[in-house]
Design a protein around this nucleic acid. Sequence first.
RNA 1: GGUCGGUUGGCCGAGUGGCUAGGCAACGGUCUGCAAAACCGUCUACGGCGGUUCGAAUCCGCCAUCGACCUCCA
Length: 491
Amino acid sequence: MSDFIIYNTLSRKKEVFVPINPGHVGMYVCGPTVYGEAHLGHSRPAITFDLLFRYLKHIGYKVRYVRNITDVGHLVNDADEGEDKIARKAKVEELEPMEIVQMYTNSYRRNMLQLNILPPSIEPTASGHIIEQIAAVEQMIASGFAYEVNGSVYFDVEKYASVHSYGKLSGRKIEDLYTNTRDLDTQSEKKSSLDFAVWKKAAPEHIMRWPSPWGEGFPGWHTECTAMSTKYLGEPFDIHGGGLDLMFPHHEAEIAQGVACFGHEPVHYWMHNNLITINGQKMGKSLGNFITLDELFFGSHAMLEKAYLPMCIRFFMLQAHYRSPLDFSNEALQAAEKGLERLFKAVSLLEGLKPGEQSSIDVPGLREKCYAAMNDDMNSPILIAHLFDGVKMINSVNDGKATVNSADLELLKKLYQDFVFDILGLKSESEAGGSESQEVLGNVVDLLLNLRIEAKKNKDWVLSDKIRNSLTELGFEIKDTKEGFEWELKK
RNA sequence: GGUCGGUUGGCCGAGUGGCUAGGCAACGGUCUGCAAAACCGUCUACGGCGGUUCGAAUCCGCCAUCGACCUCCA
Protein backbone atom coordinates (compact mmCIF):
# COMPACT_ATOMS: atom_id res chain seq x y z
CA MET A 1 0.00 0.00 0.00
CA SER A 2 1.16 3.51 -0.74
CA ASP A 3 2.29 5.92 1.96
CA PHE A 4 -0.17 7.99 3.91
CA ILE A 5 0.34 11.57 2.88
CA ILE A 6 -0.93 14.59 4.77
CA TYR A 7 -0.72 18.29 4.14
CA ASN A 8 1.42 20.00 6.72
CA THR A 9 0.50 23.64 7.23
CA LEU A 10 3.99 24.27 8.55
CA SER A 11 5.64 23.41 5.23
CA ARG A 12 2.61 24.20 3.04
CA LYS A 13 3.25 20.87 1.36
CA LYS A 14 1.93 17.38 1.32
CA GLU A 15 4.29 15.17 3.28
CA VAL A 16 4.57 11.45 3.88
CA PHE A 17 3.37 10.78 7.39
CA VAL A 18 6.11 9.27 9.52
CA PRO A 19 5.29 8.88 13.21
CA ILE A 20 7.84 9.60 15.89
CA ASN A 21 7.35 6.18 17.46
CA PRO A 22 6.78 3.49 14.84
CA GLY A 23 3.27 2.11 15.05
CA HIS A 24 2.04 4.84 17.37
CA VAL A 25 0.51 8.23 16.72
CA GLY A 26 -0.14 11.08 19.11
CA MET A 27 -2.64 13.66 17.94
CA TYR A 28 -4.06 16.72 19.61
CA VAL A 29 -7.00 18.77 18.38
CA CYS A 30 -8.32 22.03 19.76
CA GLY A 31 -11.76 21.32 21.17
CA PRO A 32 -14.61 23.64 22.01
CA THR A 33 -14.87 26.45 24.49
CA VAL A 34 -17.95 25.35 26.36
CA TYR A 35 -19.85 28.58 26.78
CA GLY A 36 -22.57 27.88 24.21
CA GLU A 37 -24.38 25.24 22.23
CA ALA A 38 -22.30 23.35 19.70
CA HIS A 39 -22.94 24.75 16.26
CA LEU A 40 -22.32 23.78 12.68
CA GLY A 41 -18.80 25.16 12.86
CA HIS A 42 -17.83 22.77 15.62
CA SER A 43 -18.74 19.79 13.53
CA ARG A 44 -16.14 20.39 10.83
CA PRO A 45 -12.96 19.85 12.86
CA ALA A 46 -14.71 17.15 14.85
CA ILE A 47 -15.57 15.22 11.69
CA THR A 48 -12.26 15.97 9.96
CA PHE A 49 -10.15 14.68 12.81
CA ASP A 50 -12.52 11.83 13.55
CA LEU A 51 -11.84 10.72 9.99
CA LEU A 52 -8.11 10.98 10.64
CA PHE A 53 -8.42 9.13 13.94
CA ARG A 54 -10.45 6.35 12.30
CA TYR A 55 -8.17 6.05 9.31
CA LEU A 56 -4.95 5.96 11.32
CA LYS A 57 -6.43 3.17 13.41
CA HIS A 58 -7.64 1.37 10.30
CA ILE A 59 -4.19 1.31 8.77
CA GLY A 60 -2.84 -0.21 11.93
CA TYR A 61 -1.62 2.57 14.18
CA LYS A 62 -2.21 2.71 17.85
CA VAL A 63 -3.50 6.24 18.28
CA ARG A 64 -3.79 8.45 21.30
CA TYR A 65 -6.19 11.22 20.43
CA VAL A 66 -6.40 14.16 22.82
CA ARG A 67 -9.08 16.79 22.39
CA ASN A 68 -9.39 19.43 25.05
CA ILE A 69 -12.37 21.12 26.61
CA THR A 70 -11.70 24.78 27.23
CA ASP A 71 -13.58 25.60 30.39
CA VAL A 72 -11.65 28.45 31.99
CA GLY A 73 -12.62 30.91 29.31
CA HIS A 74 -10.48 33.04 27.14
CA LEU A 75 -9.80 36.67 27.80
CA VAL A 76 -12.25 38.90 26.07
CA ASN A 77 -9.34 41.19 25.27
CA ASP A 78 -6.23 42.51 26.89
CA ALA A 79 -7.84 45.72 28.03
CA ASP A 80 -10.57 43.79 29.75
CA GLU A 81 -10.40 43.73 33.50
CA GLY A 82 -10.17 40.01 33.41
CA GLU A 83 -13.73 38.92 33.06
CA ASP A 84 -13.75 35.89 30.86
CA LYS A 85 -16.40 34.58 28.55
CA ILE A 86 -17.63 31.87 30.80
CA ALA A 87 -17.94 34.16 33.78
CA ARG A 88 -19.84 36.67 31.70
CA LYS A 89 -22.32 34.08 30.51
CA ALA A 90 -22.71 32.80 34.05
CA LYS A 91 -23.72 36.20 35.29
CA VAL A 92 -26.25 36.57 32.53
CA GLU A 93 -27.86 33.27 33.35
CA GLU A 94 -27.19 33.47 37.04
CA LEU A 95 -25.48 30.16 37.15
CA GLU A 96 -22.30 28.90 38.64
CA PRO A 97 -19.57 28.97 35.95
CA MET A 98 -18.84 25.29 36.32
CA GLU A 99 -22.53 24.61 35.88
CA ILE A 100 -22.44 26.34 32.52
CA VAL A 101 -19.35 24.36 31.64
CA GLN A 102 -21.00 21.11 32.59
CA MET A 103 -24.19 21.89 30.73
CA TYR A 104 -22.51 22.76 27.46
CA THR A 105 -19.95 19.98 27.77
CA ASN A 106 -22.82 17.54 28.07
CA SER A 107 -24.61 18.87 25.04
CA TYR A 108 -21.39 19.00 23.02
CA ARG A 109 -20.71 15.34 23.78
CA ARG A 110 -24.28 14.41 22.92
CA ASN A 111 -24.03 16.20 19.57
CA MET A 112 -20.72 14.52 18.81
CA LEU A 113 -22.23 11.15 19.59
CA GLN A 114 -25.11 11.89 17.24
CA LEU A 115 -22.62 12.66 14.49
CA ASN A 116 -21.03 9.28 15.21
CA ILE A 117 -17.77 10.90 16.24
CA LEU A 118 -15.64 8.55 18.28
CA PRO A 119 -14.77 9.86 21.72
CA PRO A 120 -11.12 10.91 21.91
CA SER A 121 -8.75 8.84 24.00
CA ILE A 122 -8.37 11.68 26.47
CA GLU A 123 -10.57 14.76 26.83
CA PRO A 124 -8.75 16.98 29.31
CA THR A 125 -10.22 20.18 30.73
CA ALA A 126 -8.21 23.33 31.20
CA SER A 127 -9.53 23.79 34.72
CA GLY A 128 -8.23 20.36 35.63
CA HIS A 129 -4.71 21.24 34.50
CA ILE A 130 -3.95 24.51 36.26
CA ILE A 131 -0.91 23.02 37.95
CA GLU A 132 0.54 21.90 34.63
CA GLN A 133 -0.12 25.30 33.12
CA ILE A 134 1.58 27.09 35.97
CA ALA A 135 4.56 24.78 35.50
CA ALA A 136 4.64 25.65 31.80
CA VAL A 137 4.57 29.36 32.57
CA GLU A 138 7.43 28.88 35.04
CA GLN A 139 9.43 27.14 32.33
CA MET A 140 8.82 30.02 29.95
CA ILE A 141 10.03 32.49 32.57
CA ALA A 142 13.04 30.32 33.31
CA SER A 143 14.03 30.21 29.66
CA GLY A 144 13.75 33.98 29.51
CA PHE A 145 10.87 34.20 27.07
CA ALA A 146 8.22 35.32 29.53
CA TYR A 147 8.15 38.05 32.16
CA GLU A 148 5.94 38.90 35.10
CA VAL A 149 4.35 42.29 35.56
CA ASN A 150 2.00 43.08 38.39
CA GLY A 151 0.66 39.55 38.82
CA SER A 152 0.37 38.75 35.13
CA VAL A 153 2.87 36.90 32.98
CA TYR A 154 3.41 37.79 29.32
CA PHE A 155 5.22 36.06 26.54
CA ASP A 156 8.05 38.18 25.18
CA VAL A 157 7.35 37.93 21.47
CA GLU A 158 10.03 40.41 20.48
CA LYS A 159 12.73 38.51 22.28
CA TYR A 160 11.48 35.23 20.92
CA ALA A 161 11.42 36.59 17.39
CA SER A 162 15.01 37.74 17.68
CA VAL A 163 16.14 34.14 18.12
CA HIS A 164 13.39 32.09 16.53
CA SER A 165 10.89 32.53 13.78
CA TYR A 166 7.58 33.87 15.05
CA GLY A 167 4.87 33.62 12.43
CA LYS A 168 6.22 30.68 10.46
CA LEU A 169 3.00 28.70 10.66
CA SER A 170 0.64 31.44 9.55
CA GLY A 171 3.12 33.06 7.17
CA ARG A 172 3.21 36.31 9.06
CA LYS A 173 6.14 38.62 9.31
CA ILE A 174 6.88 40.28 12.58
CA GLU A 175 7.17 43.73 10.95
CA ASP A 176 3.69 43.36 9.49
CA LEU A 177 2.32 42.41 12.85
CA TYR A 178 3.63 45.64 14.29
CA THR A 179 2.05 47.81 11.65
CA ASN A 180 -1.22 45.98 11.91
CA THR A 181 -1.62 45.61 15.60
CA ARG A 182 -4.42 47.71 16.91
CA ASP A 183 -3.24 50.16 19.50
CA LEU A 184 -5.41 51.49 22.30
CA ASP A 185 -3.34 49.67 24.85
CA THR A 186 -0.71 52.36 25.19
CA GLN A 187 -0.85 52.20 28.95
CA SER A 188 -0.55 48.44 28.80
CA GLU A 189 1.86 46.76 31.12
CA LYS A 190 3.14 44.64 28.26
CA LYS A 191 6.56 45.36 26.82
CA SER A 192 5.22 45.12 23.30
CA SER A 193 1.81 45.10 21.77
CA LEU A 194 2.64 41.71 20.26
CA ASP A 195 3.11 40.06 23.63
CA PHE A 196 0.38 37.77 24.78
CA ALA A 197 -0.67 36.75 28.28
CA VAL A 198 0.30 33.30 29.48
CA TRP A 199 -1.01 33.96 32.98
CA LYS A 200 -3.43 36.70 33.85
CA LYS A 201 -4.03 38.33 37.21
CA ALA A 202 -7.64 38.00 38.32
CA ALA A 203 -9.57 41.16 39.04
CA PRO A 204 -11.59 41.07 42.26
CA GLU A 205 -14.87 40.39 40.45
CA HIS A 206 -13.39 37.59 38.41
CA ILE A 207 -14.96 34.32 39.50
CA MET A 208 -12.73 31.65 38.01
CA ARG A 209 -9.35 32.03 39.71
CA TRP A 210 -6.54 29.97 41.04
CA PRO A 211 -3.55 30.67 43.24
CA SER A 212 -0.18 30.87 41.54
CA PRO A 213 3.36 32.09 42.24
CA TRP A 214 2.22 35.43 40.81
CA GLY A 215 -0.92 35.74 42.87
CA GLU A 216 -4.50 34.77 42.13
CA GLY A 217 -5.25 34.48 38.48
CA PHE A 218 -6.05 32.26 35.55
CA PRO A 219 -4.14 30.87 32.58
CA GLY A 220 -3.82 32.75 29.30
CA TRP A 221 -5.68 31.37 26.39
CA HIS A 222 -2.80 29.61 24.64
CA THR A 223 -1.32 28.06 27.73
CA GLU A 224 -3.68 25.14 28.16
CA CYS A 225 -2.97 23.53 24.81
CA THR A 226 0.79 23.64 25.36
CA ALA A 227 0.48 22.14 28.83
CA MET A 228 -2.10 19.47 28.08
CA SER A 229 -0.88 18.30 24.68
CA THR A 230 2.64 17.68 25.88
CA LYS A 231 1.53 16.19 29.18
CA TYR A 232 -0.29 13.38 27.42
CA LEU A 233 1.60 13.11 24.14
CA GLY A 234 5.15 14.10 25.07
CA GLU A 235 7.22 16.52 23.06
CA PRO A 236 7.50 16.67 20.26
CA PHE A 237 4.33 14.85 19.26
CA ASP A 238 3.00 13.89 15.84
CA ILE A 239 -0.11 15.77 14.79
CA HIS A 240 -1.83 18.91 15.94
CA GLY A 241 -5.14 19.80 14.36
CA GLY A 242 -7.70 22.53 14.51
CA GLY A 243 -9.66 25.05 12.51
CA LEU A 244 -7.97 27.40 10.08
CA ASP A 245 -9.03 30.32 12.20
CA LEU A 246 -6.89 29.11 15.08
CA MET A 247 -3.70 29.23 13.07
CA PHE A 248 -3.00 32.75 14.19
CA PRO A 249 -2.47 33.62 16.89
CA HIS A 250 -3.36 30.49 18.84
CA HIS A 251 -1.22 27.87 17.13
CA GLU A 252 1.57 30.31 16.46
CA ALA A 253 1.65 31.02 20.19
CA GLU A 254 1.68 27.31 20.92
CA ILE A 255 4.77 26.85 18.80
CA ALA A 256 6.51 29.75 20.54
CA GLN A 257 5.50 28.49 23.98
CA GLY A 258 6.65 25.01 23.10
CA VAL A 259 10.05 26.25 21.99
CA ALA A 260 10.30 28.39 25.13
CA CYS A 261 9.44 25.44 27.36
CA PHE A 262 11.28 22.60 25.67
CA GLY A 263 13.86 24.19 23.44
CA HIS A 264 12.37 22.69 20.30
CA GLU A 265 9.18 22.76 18.31
CA PRO A 266 6.35 20.81 19.90
CA VAL A 267 4.63 19.42 16.80
CA HIS A 268 5.66 17.61 13.60
CA TYR A 269 2.50 17.95 11.53
CA TRP A 270 0.04 20.81 11.75
CA MET A 271 -3.31 20.17 10.10
CA HIS A 272 -6.07 22.72 9.61
CA ASN A 273 -9.60 22.24 8.43
CA ASN A 274 -11.29 24.97 6.43
CA LEU A 275 -14.39 26.81 7.56
CA ILE A 276 -18.05 26.65 6.70
CA THR A 277 -20.04 29.37 5.01
CA ILE A 278 -23.80 29.56 4.86
CA ASN A 279 -25.23 30.54 1.51
CA GLY A 280 -21.84 32.02 0.74
CA GLN A 281 -21.69 34.05 3.91
CA LYS A 282 -19.53 33.58 6.92
CA MET A 283 -21.38 32.06 9.80
CA GLY A 284 -21.75 34.39 12.71
CA LYS A 285 -24.16 35.37 15.41
CA SER A 286 -24.40 38.91 14.12
CA LEU A 287 -25.46 37.72 10.68
CA GLY A 288 -28.32 35.64 12.02
CA ASN A 289 -27.13 32.56 10.20
CA PHE A 290 -25.68 30.90 13.22
CA ILE A 291 -27.07 27.37 13.34
CA THR A 292 -26.59 25.04 16.27
CA LEU A 293 -26.40 21.31 15.74
CA ASP A 294 -29.63 20.75 17.65
CA GLU A 295 -31.42 23.25 15.43
CA LEU A 296 -30.10 21.37 12.45
CA PHE A 297 -31.24 18.00 13.74
CA PHE A 298 -34.69 19.33 14.59
CA GLY A 299 -35.05 21.75 11.69
CA SER A 300 -35.79 24.52 14.15
CA HIS A 301 -34.08 27.45 12.49
CA ALA A 302 -35.60 29.96 10.13
CA MET A 303 -33.03 29.18 7.44
CA LEU A 304 -33.74 25.47 7.40
CA GLU A 305 -36.39 24.01 5.15
CA LYS A 306 -36.44 20.80 7.13
CA ALA A 307 -34.63 18.77 9.76
CA TYR A 308 -31.48 16.98 8.70
CA LEU A 309 -30.29 13.76 10.23
CA PRO A 310 -26.84 13.83 11.78
CA MET A 311 -25.59 11.34 9.20
CA CYS A 312 -26.71 13.63 6.42
CA ILE A 313 -24.59 16.42 7.92
CA ARG A 314 -21.66 14.09 8.28
CA PHE A 315 -21.92 12.80 4.74
CA PHE A 316 -22.35 16.32 3.41
CA MET A 317 -19.11 17.39 5.04
CA LEU A 318 -17.23 14.34 3.89
CA GLN A 319 -18.24 15.09 0.31
CA ALA A 320 -15.96 18.10 0.43
CA HIS A 321 -12.24 18.00 1.14
CA TYR A 322 -11.41 19.15 4.66
CA ARG A 323 -9.09 21.89 3.42
CA SER A 324 -11.70 23.42 1.13
CA PRO A 325 -14.28 25.90 2.26
CA LEU A 326 -17.71 24.36 2.35
CA ASP A 327 -20.88 26.19 1.60
CA PHE A 328 -23.96 25.17 3.42
CA SER A 329 -27.42 25.37 1.87
CA ASN A 330 -30.70 23.50 1.96
CA GLU A 331 -30.27 22.49 -1.64
CA ALA A 332 -26.81 21.05 -1.07
CA LEU A 333 -27.92 19.22 2.05
CA GLN A 334 -30.88 17.65 0.33
CA ALA A 335 -28.64 16.49 -2.49
CA ALA A 336 -26.36 14.90 0.08
CA GLU A 337 -29.33 13.27 1.75
CA LYS A 338 -30.40 11.58 -1.47
CA GLY A 339 -26.90 10.49 -2.32
CA LEU A 340 -26.44 8.95 1.11
CA GLU A 341 -29.71 7.09 0.72
CA ARG A 342 -28.54 5.66 -2.56
CA LEU A 343 -25.25 4.56 -1.02
CA PHE A 344 -26.96 2.79 1.85
CA LYS A 345 -29.44 1.13 -0.43
CA ALA A 346 -26.58 -0.42 -2.35
CA VAL A 347 -24.88 -1.48 0.86
CA SER A 348 -27.99 -3.35 1.99
CA LEU A 349 -28.32 -4.88 -1.46
CA LEU A 350 -24.77 -6.16 -1.11
CA GLU A 351 -25.83 -8.59 1.61
CA GLY A 352 -28.20 -10.44 -0.67
CA LEU A 353 -25.93 -10.58 -3.71
CA LYS A 354 -25.28 -14.03 -5.15
CA PRO A 355 -21.78 -14.92 -6.28
CA GLY A 356 -21.16 -16.27 -9.78
CA GLU A 357 -18.32 -18.16 -11.41
CA GLN A 358 -16.41 -15.15 -12.57
CA SER A 359 -16.17 -11.46 -11.89
CA SER A 360 -16.94 -8.98 -14.60
CA ILE A 361 -16.16 -6.14 -12.21
CA ASP A 362 -12.79 -5.13 -10.79
CA VAL A 363 -13.13 -5.27 -7.03
CA PRO A 364 -9.42 -5.28 -6.11
CA GLY A 365 -8.95 -2.28 -8.38
CA LEU A 366 -11.73 -0.43 -6.63
CA ARG A 367 -10.22 -1.22 -3.26
CA GLU A 368 -6.88 0.08 -4.46
CA LYS A 369 -8.45 3.35 -5.57
CA CYS A 370 -10.23 3.82 -2.26
CA TYR A 371 -6.99 3.51 -0.31
CA ALA A 372 -5.20 5.77 -2.76
CA ALA A 373 -7.84 8.45 -2.20
CA MET A 374 -7.53 8.30 1.58
CA ASN A 375 -3.76 8.17 1.45
CA ASP A 376 -3.74 11.37 -0.53
CA ASP A 377 -4.34 13.76 2.34
CA MET A 378 -7.65 12.14 3.25
CA ASN A 379 -9.43 12.88 0.02
CA SER A 380 -12.85 11.82 1.19
CA PRO A 381 -14.74 13.27 -1.83
CA ILE A 382 -12.68 11.12 -4.18
CA LEU A 383 -13.19 8.14 -1.90
CA ILE A 384 -16.93 8.72 -2.02
CA ALA A 385 -16.83 9.03 -5.81
CA HIS A 386 -15.18 5.59 -5.96
CA LEU A 387 -17.74 4.18 -3.57
CA PHE A 388 -20.44 5.38 -5.93
CA ASP A 389 -18.66 3.63 -8.79
CA GLY A 390 -18.97 0.58 -6.58
CA VAL A 391 -22.68 1.29 -6.14
CA LYS A 392 -23.05 0.97 -9.90
CA MET A 393 -21.25 -2.36 -9.77
CA ILE A 394 -23.47 -3.63 -6.97
CA ASN A 395 -26.63 -2.57 -8.80
CA SER A 396 -25.44 -4.17 -12.01
CA VAL A 397 -24.74 -7.46 -10.28
CA ASN A 398 -28.11 -7.26 -8.60
CA ASP A 399 -29.73 -6.74 -11.97
CA GLY A 400 -27.85 -9.65 -13.46
CA LYS A 401 -25.92 -7.39 -15.80
CA ALA A 402 -22.62 -8.06 -14.13
CA THR A 403 -21.18 -10.93 -12.15
CA VAL A 404 -18.95 -11.28 -9.15
CA ASN A 405 -17.22 -14.41 -7.86
CA SER A 406 -17.42 -15.32 -4.21
CA ALA A 407 -13.91 -14.13 -3.33
CA ASP A 408 -14.57 -10.75 -4.91
CA LEU A 409 -17.98 -10.54 -3.27
CA GLU A 410 -16.42 -11.05 0.14
CA LEU A 411 -13.83 -8.43 -0.69
CA LEU A 412 -16.53 -6.04 -1.79
CA LYS A 413 -18.48 -6.54 1.42
CA LYS A 414 -15.33 -5.96 3.44
CA LEU A 415 -14.59 -2.86 1.38
CA TYR A 416 -17.92 -1.26 2.19
CA GLN A 417 -17.75 -2.27 5.82
CA ASP A 418 -14.29 -0.74 6.11
CA PHE A 419 -14.78 2.44 4.18
CA VAL A 420 -18.41 3.36 4.72
CA PHE A 421 -18.82 2.36 8.34
CA ASP A 422 -15.38 2.18 9.93
CA ILE A 423 -13.53 4.95 8.12
CA LEU A 424 -16.13 7.45 6.97
CA GLY A 425 -18.00 6.66 10.15
CA LEU A 426 -21.41 6.60 8.52
CA LYS A 427 -24.20 4.56 9.98
CA SER A 428 -27.64 3.65 8.90
CA GLU A 429 -30.14 5.46 11.06
CA SER A 430 -33.21 3.60 9.93
CA GLU A 431 -32.34 0.37 11.67
CA ALA A 432 -33.37 1.72 15.03
CA GLY A 433 -34.93 -1.48 16.40
CA GLY A 434 -38.51 -2.12 15.35
CA SER A 435 -40.91 -1.54 18.15
CA GLU A 436 -43.94 -3.77 18.47
CA SER A 437 -46.31 -1.31 16.89
CA GLN A 438 -43.96 -0.90 13.95
CA GLU A 439 -43.86 -4.64 13.52
CA VAL A 440 -47.62 -4.79 13.45
CA LEU A 441 -47.73 -1.91 11.00
CA GLY A 442 -45.31 -3.79 8.77
CA ASN A 443 -47.53 -6.83 8.80
CA VAL A 444 -50.51 -4.72 7.83
CA VAL A 445 -48.60 -3.22 4.91
CA ASP A 446 -47.57 -6.71 3.82
CA LEU A 447 -51.19 -7.80 4.01
CA LEU A 448 -52.33 -4.92 1.81
CA LEU A 449 -49.62 -5.58 -0.72
CA ASN A 450 -50.49 -9.26 -0.82
CA LEU A 451 -54.07 -8.28 -1.58
CA ARG A 452 -52.69 -6.10 -4.32
CA ILE A 453 -50.89 -9.09 -5.84
CA GLU A 454 -54.23 -10.91 -5.93
CA ALA A 455 -55.72 -7.91 -7.68
CA LYS A 456 -52.87 -7.83 -10.16
CA LYS A 457 -53.35 -11.50 -10.92
CA ASN A 458 -56.95 -10.70 -11.75
CA LYS A 459 -55.77 -7.70 -13.77
CA ASP A 460 -57.82 -5.50 -11.51
CA TRP A 461 -55.61 -2.48 -12.10
CA VAL A 462 -58.06 -0.11 -10.47
CA LEU A 463 -57.86 -1.88 -7.12
CA SER A 464 -54.15 -2.54 -7.52
CA ASP A 465 -53.36 1.09 -8.14
CA LYS A 466 -55.67 2.23 -5.40
CA ILE A 467 -53.76 0.18 -2.85
CA ARG A 468 -50.40 1.36 -4.11
CA ASN A 469 -51.39 4.99 -4.46
CA SER A 470 -52.98 5.11 -1.05
CA LEU A 471 -49.89 3.65 0.56
CA THR A 472 -47.71 6.07 -1.38
CA GLU A 473 -49.78 8.95 -0.11
CA LEU A 474 -49.24 7.71 3.41
CA GLY A 475 -45.51 7.86 2.82
CA PHE A 476 -44.65 4.36 1.70
CA GLU A 477 -42.53 3.66 -1.32
CA ILE A 478 -43.69 0.58 -3.19
CA LYS A 479 -41.53 -1.35 -5.63
CA ASP A 480 -42.71 -4.30 -7.65
CA THR A 481 -40.18 -7.06 -8.07
CA LYS A 482 -40.16 -10.42 -9.79
CA GLU A 483 -40.75 -12.19 -6.51
CA GLY A 484 -43.52 -9.87 -5.41
CA PHE A 485 -42.90 -6.51 -3.82
CA GLU A 486 -40.66 -4.41 -1.61
CA TRP A 487 -41.64 -1.43 0.43
CA GLU A 488 -40.14 1.08 2.74
CA LEU A 489 -41.45 3.89 4.82
CA LYS A 490 -40.18 7.28 3.74
CA LYS A 491 -40.26 9.92 6.39
C1' G B 1 -3.92 48.56 4.77
C1' G B 2 -0.98 43.71 5.38
C1' U B 3 -0.98 38.29 4.69
C1' C B 4 -3.22 34.01 2.71
C1' G B 5 -6.85 31.38 -0.12
C1' G B 6 -10.92 30.86 -3.55
C1' U B 7 -13.67 31.86 -8.50
C1' U B 8 -15.35 24.71 -12.14
C1' G B 9 -21.48 22.72 -15.96
C1' G B 10 -28.79 24.10 -13.38
C1' C B 11 -26.90 23.17 -7.87
C1' C B 12 -23.03 20.94 -4.55
C1' G B 13 -18.14 19.57 -5.21
C1' A B 14 -13.11 16.80 -6.90
C1' G B 15 -9.01 17.35 -10.09
C1' U B 16 -4.62 20.44 -11.60
C1' G B 17 -0.27 20.58 -18.33
C1' G B 18 -3.06 16.11 -23.04
C1' C B 19 -6.99 10.80 -20.80
C1' U B 20 -15.42 10.44 -18.27
C1' A B 21 -14.37 12.79 -11.11
C1' G B 22 -18.64 11.90 -8.21
C1' G B 23 -23.44 13.34 -6.10
C1' C B 24 -28.17 15.97 -6.82
C1' A B 25 -31.52 17.90 -10.55
C1' A B 26 -33.21 17.58 -15.77
C1' C B 27 -34.10 14.94 -20.36
C1' G B 28 -34.28 10.34 -23.55
C1' G B 29 -34.26 4.95 -23.51
C1' U B 30 -34.54 -0.34 -21.28
C1' C B 31 -37.62 -2.88 -17.77
C1' U B 32 -42.93 -2.70 -16.02
C1' G B 33 -50.21 -3.61 -17.04
C1' C B 34 -48.86 1.53 -15.59
C1' A B 35 -45.45 3.29 -12.02
C1' A B 36 -41.36 3.24 -8.62
C1' A B 37 -36.48 1.44 -8.12
C1' A B 38 -32.47 -0.11 -11.00
C1' C B 39 -29.74 0.07 -15.48
C1' C B 40 -28.03 2.60 -20.13
C1' G B 41 -27.48 7.22 -22.53
C1' U B 42 -27.62 12.81 -22.96
C1' C B 43 -26.42 17.68 -20.94
C1' U B 44 -19.02 17.84 -21.14
C1' A B 45 -17.81 23.34 -17.40
C1' C B 46 -13.46 25.42 -15.50
C1' G B 47 -14.10 34.46 -13.68
C1' G B 48 -11.84 38.02 -17.73
C1' C B 49 -7.62 39.42 -20.80
C1' G B 50 -2.73 38.42 -22.30
C1' G B 51 1.67 35.08 -22.24
C1' U B 52 4.61 30.21 -22.04
C1' U B 53 3.70 25.38 -24.62
C1' C B 54 2.84 20.89 -29.97
C1' G B 55 -1.16 21.24 -26.22
C1' A B 56 -3.71 25.05 -20.28
C1' A B 57 -9.34 24.80 -16.56
C1' U B 58 -4.33 23.20 -14.77
C1' C B 59 2.01 27.12 -15.34
C1' C B 60 3.16 32.77 -15.54
C1' G B 61 1.42 38.02 -15.60
C1' C B 62 -2.36 41.61 -15.16
C1' C B 63 -7.46 42.68 -14.03
C1' A B 64 -12.22 41.62 -11.82
C1' U B 65 -14.63 39.38 -7.88
C1' C B 66 -15.56 36.64 -3.24
C1' G B 67 -13.74 35.21 1.33
C1' A B 68 -10.52 34.13 5.59
C1' C B 69 -6.94 35.85 9.07
C1' C B 70 -4.64 40.24 11.32
C1' U B 71 -9.52 40.82 17.70
C1' C B 72 -12.82 35.84 20.87
C1' C B 73 -14.34 32.32 17.15
C1' A B 74 -14.27 25.53 14.70
